[in-house]
Design a protein around this nucleic acid. Structure first.
Length: 799
RNA sequence: GCCGAAGUGGCGGAAUGGUAGACGCACAAGACUCAAAAUCUUGCGUAGGCAACUACAUGAGGGUUCGAGUCCCUCCUUCGGUACCA
């Protein structure tokens, strides 16, 4: 088949007939399928896009024929660093580069034949879109969920710029390869931690794969424990040191304390700490270590003992020394811990290195060898009122005791940190924030949104790690919306995650200039019925967008709390050599080249046939031939068409079974077995060498979601007037023929033969057949002790 | 270390506790052809046998069951995620 002509022909017909248009408020049941919108890169479509989008493409095509009002939208996640870097390198404005890339990728997506509703196309860099991104930020700010705070950022002292984590991997600057250092800077944060509990508990009712839920749970990282106040003595002075622990039961086993190098108590008593120089030295070293270094595993424990300051165990008033060590993080808990070397591996390593006492408070284990950390075994010892209890009971009793004595209480912590929400970059959403000399930080009023991103000549990051926007005085300098006085704009921009945190809402009402989307339309379309995307977005994008949606729900803007009812993920497409595709390995497959050589239908079919959808699988240029051959065979199947009306009796069972199998498999993401069922049917027709027009039509409809162009073309060729894209999904027919099934026969659990019997043949009839069976009767070598008979499944005879 | 997923022919991969290897690739033989390609047909886990058939076989070892790739226990390997989280 001349696939180039045929594919173009049908793409034009579909567009003209608007068969993929989703209609607001249609009476049909709605189905909204969402795929992660692409970043418009200069490279164009990657094979991964094809796999990611083909799933819901197939589902959407089927659902339309099944009578659903389907929305399958697409857009562009277009802000971001690569475009900015491209602009710097080639001296092209990011706006122009983005528009070019979108144009190119859009043409590519159309060539694959995806049934996107292009009328709803969105672009996060369009001011009509980022208007509402800024508006959402305003609401977050008003509710106190956006705040500015000091934080450490990656900074390259040679380039004099702030780098993202991606640009500073391995603690090295991406551009000049010099050592990146941590620099303190005022940055914006969103209080996602306030939503930690809801983000966690909300998972229970969502239809997400278990591994996705697990990763999100882990990312949120809930831990329950207690905060406890230890007294500290600094000479004659007294103060309090608050620690967090999940093991309140071990309080009697505390032999020292550890605080983070950044802990404020160090500065507070700097003049009282005798070895303050040594401490400062350690602090400086810790600060130099990048995030990368500090996170390395199993490092040797290091630390410095504070001289002139001790802590007092509130339970037994014993004095214990305090250390600073970088294995305790300021960002988690209280930045201070009680160390119980007998029952914590890190404390144990530290105690061994610094020769500190180790007091067991739970029996079991051998603390001369290692810390005993099992919480399910052993009874409390050396612990006064806890003695004899199990660990879990001891924790509860201790927390009760702490509360009563007013020295501590139960506390829940989350590992998830607040979301650092800005970049020192040009190509992002400007913040709707100005700094007024008189009024301080002022929000830009909503009627003045959007704050448009100005055109600039130079996109290079400016000195001192400022955003390039700082170099545009006519934009930076403005009047304060409150007092009319002199003010300056925030020159940082939002991170790439901003637009993608709510884009799906905009599809539901893409041209609204009064609000981000109307309530009625959100109510009709939302929530998303099925969202497919990559595993790499499970912890960030997926959590960030759930957070924004919950927030918008809380302020009454969105009528549903969770944005995505169901989530699936596609497995990676590996290179032919089994490695991840990468330019350097030279194993990258270009989807456009495949389309040129084989056609879009073959590409679509193969990407779904190659493996189970959710697992990674290598590309094979040999195997794709099989899919091409299959479509060629389908085309030649037309020659077998006879004048028979209806469905041949010989085919009714087979046809019914593929209708059922393909429908179920598509809905269950099992495309590979659905396609193989279609192949089996074709093989049957080649055996029989006849097929009726009606059977062929049904078959082509089943093929249509996978290979729509050839299906439409053949459907037209065999004389059907109605386009498949405007027809109905086939349904199973009444089958009155006597069905025969193959009944496996086992003796003593061993397979011996298969008996062809009528469906629902009873046990005694089957046994009779076996006794009269030439071969099978030979296995009845003695008395029949027992017969296991599962109707239509199996018979097993114990002799 | 912790969490998750997975180990099945030469390869990609199928199998609600019930015929292991569907479907496809590769390979081989035959048909068509002057020939090749394409196409069509057949074969294709391993061992033995002309064959019917028999034995063995789903990472390793145990167990539950009439029956285990599938469930349970122990272990090995690979991949993904995550990490001095107190």
């Amino acid at each position: 088949m001349d696939f180039e002509r045929v594919e173009k022909k049908w793409q034009e017909i579909w567009e003209k007939e608007e068969v993929f248009k989703s209609k607001d408020f249609d009476k049909k049941p709605k189905f909204m399928g969402l795929v992660e919108f692409p970043y418009p890169s200069g490279v164009g479509l990657h094979i991964g896009h094809i796999k990611a989008y083909s799933s819901l493409e197939v589902v959407s095509r089927m659902k339309r024929l099944q009578g659903y009002n389907v929305m399958f939208p697409i857009g562009w996640d277009a802000f971001g660093l690569p475009t900015e870097n491209f602009a710097i390198k080639n001296n092209i404005a990011p706006r122009i580069a983005t528009d070019n890339n979108i144009k190119n990728m859009k043409a590519q997506l159309k060539r694959v034949g995806y049934s996107f509703d292009w009328a709803r196309e969105i672009d996060t860099t369009d001011e009509k879109f980022y208007h509402w991104t800024q508006w959402i930020f305003c609401q977050l700010y008003k509710k106190g969920l956006a705040y500015k705070s000091k934080a450490l950022v990656n900074y390259c002292p040679v380039c004099d710029v702030i780098l993202s984590n991606e640009e500073s991997q391995g603690g090295e600057c991406d551009r000049c390869h010099s050592q990146v250092v941590q620099k303190e800077k005022e940055v914006w944060f969103l209080k996602i931690r306030d939503y930690a509990e809801r983000l966690l508990s909300g998972l229970d009712k969502l239809d997400f794969p278990a591994r996705v839920k697990e990763e999100q749970r882990h990312w949120i990282g809930k831990s329950t424990g207690a905060e406890v106040n230890f007294k500290v003595k600094i000479g004659s002075q007294e103060d309090t040191l608050r620690i967090y622990t999940t093991r309140a039961d071990t309080l009697f086993g505390v032999t020292f304390m550890v605080i983070a190098p950044e802990h404020p108590i160090l500065e507070k008593y700097a003049d009282k700490i005798k070895n303050i120089n040594e401490v400062k030295d350690y602090q400086a070293k810790a600060k130099q270590k990048s995030e990368f270094d500090r996170v390395q595993v199993n490092k040797d424990k290091t630390g410095v003992k504070l001289d002139g300051i001790v802590a007092i165990n509130p339970l037994n008033n014993k004095e214990v020394p305090i250390f600073i060590a970088d294995y305790v993080m300021m960002g988690y808990g209280t930045g201070a811990i009680m160390a119980v070397p007998a029952h914590d591996t890190r404390d144990y390593d530290f105690a061994k290195k610094f020769n500190l006492p180790i007091i067991p408070v739970i029996e079991g284990g051998d603390i001369s060898k290692e810390a005993f950390t099992d919480i399910n075994e052993g009874k409390m010892i050396n612990s006064e009122f806890l003695n004899g209890l199990g660990v879990k009971d001891a924790i509860a009793k201790m927390i009760e005791h702490l509360a009563k004595e007013n020295i501590g209480e139960a506390k829940t912590n989350y590992q998830m940190k607040d979301w650092a929400f800005n970049r020192q970059r040009y190509w992002g959403e400007p913040f709707p924030i100005v700094y007024c000399e008189k009024c301080g930080t002022v929000l830009v009023p909503e009627d003045q949104l959007p704050v448009k991103l100005p055109e600039v000549k130079d996109f290079k990051p400016s000195k001192n790690g400022e955003s390039p926007l700082a170099q545009v005085p006519e934009w930076v300098n403005c009047t304060c919306p409150k007092c009319g006085g002199k003010a300056k704009r925030e020159t940082d921009t939002m991170p790439q995650w901003a637009g993608s945190s709510w884009y799906y809402l905009r599809y539901m009402d893409p041209n609204n200039d009064k609000e981000l989307a109307s309530q009625d339309k959100l109510k009709y379309w939302g929530p998303i019925d099925w969202y497919n995307g990559g595993m790499e977005h499970v912890t960030r994008h997926l959590i960030y967008s759930r957070f924004w949606n919950m927030f918008l729900y809380d302020i009454g803007v969105v009528p549903f709390e969770e944005p995505y009812s169901k989530r699936t993920t596609q497995g990676l497409v590996l290179g032919e050599d089994g490695n991840k595709m990468s330019k350097s390995l030279g194993n990258v497959v270009d989807p456009m080249e495949i389309i040129n050589n084989f056609g879009a239908d073959v590409l679509r079919l193969y990407i779904l046939f190659m493996a189970e959808y959710e697992s990674a699988a290598p590309w094979s240029s040999a195997n794709i031939n099989g899919c091409k051959r299959f479509l060629d065979r389908v085309e030649r199947m037309v020659d077998f068409i006879d004048d028979h009306k209806g469905v041949h009796a010989e085919h009714i069972t087979e046809l019914n079974s593929i209708i059922e199998k393909v429908s179920n498999d598509i809905a269950a993401l099992k495309f590979n077995t659905g396609i193989s069922a279609l192949m089996t049917f074709v093989n049957t027709i080649y055996q029989d060498k006849f097929i009726s027009r009606e059977e062929m039509t049904d078959f082509l409809k089943l093929l249509y979601p996978f290979a729509p162009h050839i299906a439409e073309e053949l459907n037209e060729q065999i004389g059907n007037k109605e386009y498949i894209s405007k027809s109905n999904w086939p349904t199973v027919r009444v089958d009155n023929s006597v069905k025969y099934i193959n009944l496996p026969v086992q003796f003593n659990g061993k397979m011996r033969d298969v008996l062809k019997v009528e469906e629902n043949t009873p046990q005694d009839k089957v046994l009779e057949l076996i006794k009269n069976h030439e071969k099978l009767s030979g296995y009845i070598t003695g008395e029949i002790k027992k017969v296991i008979f599962v109707p239509n499944k199996i018979v097993n005879i114990i002799v």
